[in-house]
Amino acid sequence: MSNNTGSGNGGGKFDQARRNFLRGIGIGTAAAVAQPAWGGQTFQDTFADFFQKDYRRMSVDEIEAALERIERKAEARYDVEIDCQNTPPQPGVVYGYAINISRCKGYRDCVHACVKENNLGRDSQMQYIRVLEMDQGDFNLEHSDHYYEPETVPVEGKHYLPVQCMQCDDPPCVKACPVEATWMEPDGIVVVDYDWCIGCRYCMAACPYWARHFNWTVPEIPAEEMNTNTHYLGNRPRPRGVVEKCHFCIHRTRKGQQPACMEACPTGSRIFGNLLDPDSAIRYVLANKQVFRLKEDLGTEPKFWYFSD
């Protein structure tokens, strides 16, 4: 597995020291050799960005250099010092998600927590999670309301269905990509290399869950709202013209934390965990609840289940 090459968080103290050292050199050289140009970037960074290899073929050093550039770019564009990591997948872990739809009350706290956590463009109003409001007794997505705005939720006679990337085990979006800019990591998360995507949007046409979103413009994020804890394959600031999607909060979950949507849910409807761990909560749900998956007939094998009490 070539994607274990990164060191990031797993690398420990030495790594952090080295990173800081490199960062010092990088800024020093940049200041000495070239004036910041190219949209706040130095010529060297622009050059290196252009010829950057795809994530899975970069060496450890090349990834390190890429992370440094991402941090410099974020500083230039958003005036924020971010920490971009490359935490590798944990061995023996494949993530799965389940939502108790009888508990979900449509508060959309998951949606808003996700926007903040993952540095989604505020002006573009991109959201990885959509909560659909439907009439009780109706489960036709075409009758669902995506933009319900009542005074208070839940509304009598309605039920709610949160939808996000299902992290399919046979993902049609990955097959669609003409440049292999999107793939499934060993821990089952379908990720995008934002620096490799050419923006053809074929994956968006291929996704049955409308989980993929495009940066039609440069995402705008207020400096004070920027989440500085970022991951190369996750919530780092994205360039314009590329596709992105839910990544199960890769920067959190790979360190054993919950995804932001689960943490934010006030009703406890969301269950996230390791599908390979027989003692995990997600495995309990799968073993003891009547679960179903959306559009299971399409054969994409979502790792995302729904159940009710």
């Binding site: 050419i198 923006g199 013209g241």
Partner: peptide, 14 residues
């Protein structure tokens, strides 16, 4: 197809 691309500068990735 090229004018439809979000990142025509990355066409060489193909």
């Amino acid at each position: 197809v090229i004018v439809d691309l979000g990142r025509p500068d990355r066409l060489w990735h193909m």
